[in-house]
Design a protein around this nucleic acid. Sequence first.
DNA 1: CGGTGTGAAGCGCTTCACAGCG
DNA 2: CGCTGTGAAGCGCTTCACACCG
Lengths: 201, 201
Amino acid sequence: MDLGTESGSHIYSHALAVKAGVTATQVRRDLMVTGVTGTPVRGYEIKKLRRHIEDFLFPVTEQKAALAGVGNIGRAILAFFAGRRPTLKIAASFEKDPEKYDRILGGYPCFSIERAEGVIRDAGITIGIIAVPAEEAQYVASLFVSAGIRGILNFARTPLQVPPEVYVEYIDLAMAMDKVAYFARWSHRPEGQLRKEESQP
Amino acid sequence: MDLGTESGSHIYSHALAVKAGVTATQVRRDLMVTGVTGTPVRGYEIKKLRRHIEDFLFPVTEQKAALAGVGNIGRAILAFFAGRRPTLKIAASFEKDPEKYDRILGGYPCFSIERAEGVIRDAGITIGIIAVPAEEAQYVASLFVSAGIRGILNFARTPLQVPPEVYVEYIDLAMAMDKVAYFARWSHRPEGQLRKEESQP
DNA sequence: CGGTGTGAAGCGCTTCACAGCG
DNA sequence: CGCTGTGAAGCGCTTCACACCG
């Protein structure tokens, strides 16, 4: 949601709700947990609101991320995150393929995956992005974990086994596509979904 | 999850659970709704299981999808979905930029976004993928809806307003990245998260 | 009134607990 | 026994309902 283009100094939860695509009640609840508070007469003070949210979401010191797998998705990610957040920078990428590593790829240095642990430690990288085939995802994840990475964004279609203190966020493009296809097929039936008998041959 | 490499004719919910990264109980519940049933002594019959799931998930007739926005993400999507599912095919892409349309892009014909409605109707496309900047997402979504599309996969960072019978699946890469960064920062504290007072300056 | 802040209820998904059965 | 199938409870998020206040 973009507060930057908002005119006036205050905004009501209802207006925020429209921008975020959720209900006004939900907005107020979410803002409660960040500690910000509004007044009934004027709503939320935009300047204060923005500062509270940024303090809540963004780190004081810069965080660095590394990408494993510079295939189609990997390259899209490099382009996508280039300079998007001042406090979050991609610092390196890793590849198995000797054709690709020891070069600048998409604006970032690409190393052999075998050098990952050293590079990650030396650069102080804490976030890993996995964009390799499913078969190699667990290997990369384990490598990341032993290099000291604390959070992983996983595009591979496989569950990762990592210690509980490492956070993993899964993005499964194939499953998202299947979901859309599934609901697109059934959308003409408002009550939705599938009755049990219909799945029988 | 890949059942293809499984040896033996039957499999227990526990084994499936390990593959899927969830609990055995959850596997049994999910399988219940597809109508498949196992026996305590042997577990689930793999052949029958696969057929039930495929009948449940995949359509009888082929479904077609269209992509709007052939930027970095768009190109990655084209490459990613090429020939992945026999029953789900990308049939066309659309672009605003005249440099890009009226060509073959990533193996699929790219048209001007202005021709979208006709192309979608003529080809019988039912699924739309939105990979354009946030400002243009609603325009594309409305175009898709009036062309008869029933499901949308939205990579743009904005909520879409569509009629209730159109299903929308959101993929927000920036938010996923922020979540990982957030938890990576707090992961050293096992109880996790942030206490209210800490968000105050 | 028309806002915010918030206890209480609702809802969907996950987990527990256990009956039933070869 | 060990596994499936399933009612019942738990949990986190969302929504309802309403007290409060300029």
